[in-house]
Computed example of a mutant assay.
Amino acid sequence: MRLKKSDTTWAGAYFIGLKSIRGGLELICSHCNTESADNVRVCIGCKAEVVHGASPREMKRAAALIAMLSAVAVGLFAHFFDTDYGLEVYLEAAIIGAVLGAGLAYFHHRGSTRFFRYYWRK
């Protein structure tokens, strides 16, 4: 859900982590409830990472998963229909799958703002 400055209210925006103050959008951290500007990369209060949309890690994982699944699907297709594909067909399927996976991750998380905080074990 994409929000514009003109159509947001305080109650609706607060639910997804945004707050409309003085005509501009501000982020509210889900960990420490600190207000920050909309364009920050790190929370001012707790130093949590602010991600707008899909993170690079999510896009890489989705691309790798869909690439592997598409190469396996081509292999199963070749096995069941007794055809012999060369390596280039598997690579093409994997590349197409990687592009589709990254695109799916991008469109799934578009318009969302999330806070990631990493806790290190001692």
Rank of each mutant, 00 (worst) to 15 (best):
F115C: 08
A73D: 03
I16V: 15
D84V: 01
C32D: 08
L27T: 10
G53S: 09
G86W: 02
W120H: 11
S30V: 07
K19A: 04
V74P: 08
R57S: 05
S30C: 10
E92I: 03
A93M: 07
A98G: 13
F107P: 00
L25V: 02
N39M: 11
H52E: 09
Y85V: 02
L69F: 13
V50W: 02
L18W: 04
A13Y: 03
M1T: 10
G24D: 14
A105N: 05
S30Y: 06
S55H: 09
N39G: 04
M68V: 12
A37Y: 14
C29A: 09
F115I: 14
T113S: 00
S112D: 04
N33E: 10
G12E: 15
A98D: 09
F77E: 05
G111W: 06
E26P: 00
F107G: 01
M68K: 02
E88K: 04
R22Y: 05
G53T: 12
S6T: 14
N33H: 11
M68I: 15
F15E: 15
R2C: 10
R61N: 14
A93R: 14
V99L: 15
F81C: 01
E58C: 09
F107C: 03
I66N: 05
L104E: 00
S112M: 13
M1V: 12
M68Y: 02
V99R: 01
A48M: 05
S55Y: 07
F15R: 08
L91G: 07
T113W: 00
C32M: 06
L27P: 12
T113E: 00
F107T: 11
A102W: 03
T9Q: 12
F81D: 00
P56W: 04
R110H: 08
